[in-house]
């Protein structure tokens, strides 16, 4: 019986394994292959050559990588702080209003990210909706709020809001009410309940939300382009330029690979720390 179950499980998993292998693993291998090609050469007959990685170090491409990771980290932290109370409300307090909130947040995803960012650009630029009104009503003009690092982070926070909110709400809904009440009954203050009960028990949701926002934000380019102007160059921008304008595929591949490795390592570490089955709902307690 057991061996039949095993065979069936294997056979069931096979199609998806093949699809993932072809569509997910293959491109990664191709990228890895490209990254060790000599610069400005397109030949499959060559020895591995790490000159692209040397270029990244020498020409300062690592700076854009650091900017990307740094801004992604900032956006993740800010999103966590903003979303926690809201997610708590959705999971425990709002009741049916949660549904309204969910629909409202999901609706924003129906409009393309670029269009929404251009909307913000028009709102915040000099002579735009905000500054223009301020000047017309109060006579105080200023330079507009675009083209700096904080506004890029704002863009990341805005765009990836749902990716933090929903996993967090899911995580908080897994915290049993009676555990929180028992902790209070045993003398814990609100802060202590948050620290000892809510945060650890909602950890799977926190981890999923943080990884999603961090990974997406670290690879994002639109926010820095549309809202940030040329204030900073992010890694995704560099990759795109290398593959297109620069026609330097080995460099683009090397940059991608570094980003993938860093993000992959963070994701694997994060996922290993929490019980993902709990949030996916397989394991009944």
């Amino acid at each position: 019986m057991k061996s039949i179950d095993h065979k069936l499980g294997f056979l069931n998993a096979l199609p998806l394994t093949l699809v993932l292998g072809v569509s997910f693993l293959m491109p990664l291998l191709v990228i890895a292959g490209f990254s060790v090609m000599p610069q400005k050469v397109f030949s499959l007959l060559h020895l591995p050559d790490f000159s692209s990685f040397a270029v990244i170090l020498k020409q300062g491409y690592y700076k854009s990588l650091l900017w990307s990771l740094g801004m992604a980290a900032a956006a993740t932290v800010i999103l966590f702080v903003i979303c926690w109370p809201l997610a708590y409300g959705m999971a425990k307090v709002f009741g049916r209003f949660s549904l309204v909130l969910t629909i409202a947040v999901v609706m924003t995803l129906f409009v393309s990210e670029n269009i929404r960012l251009f909307g913000w650009s028009l709102t915040l630029m000099k002579g735009g909706l905000f500054e223009g009104h301020m000047r017309a009503w109060f006579g105080v003009g200023f330079d507009g709020l675009l083209y700096n690092v904080p506004i890029i982070i704002f863009g990341l926070v805005y765009v990836y809001f749902p990716f933090m909110l929903f996993p967090l709400a899911q995580g908080i809904s897994m915290v049993p009410d009676d555990a929180r009440q028992a902790a209070t009954d045993l003398g814990a203050t609100r802060l202590q309940v948050l620290r000892h009960i809510d945060l650890p028990l909602a950890a799977p949701g926190i981890m999923v939300g943080s990884l999603l926002t961090f990974v997406l934000a670290a690879g994002a380019a639109a926010e820095s382009k549309i809202l940030g102007g040329q204030a900073v160059i992010v890694i995704a921008d560099d990759v795109e330029t290398a593959f297109t304008f620069g026609q330097n595929w080995p460099l683009g591949a090397a940059l991608s690979l570094i980003l993938i490795l860093i993000i992959g390592a963070i994701a694997v570490y994060g996922i290993s720390k929490v019980d993902l089955d709990a949030i996916m709902g397989r394991k009944g307690r």
Partner: peptide, 13 residues
């Protein structure tokens, strides 16, 4: 004062 809950409310983590 303190209470033993019907569900016991032990901290699972």
């Amino acid at each position: 004062t303190c209470m033993v809950f019907q569900s016991l409310a032990l901290f699972p983590h």
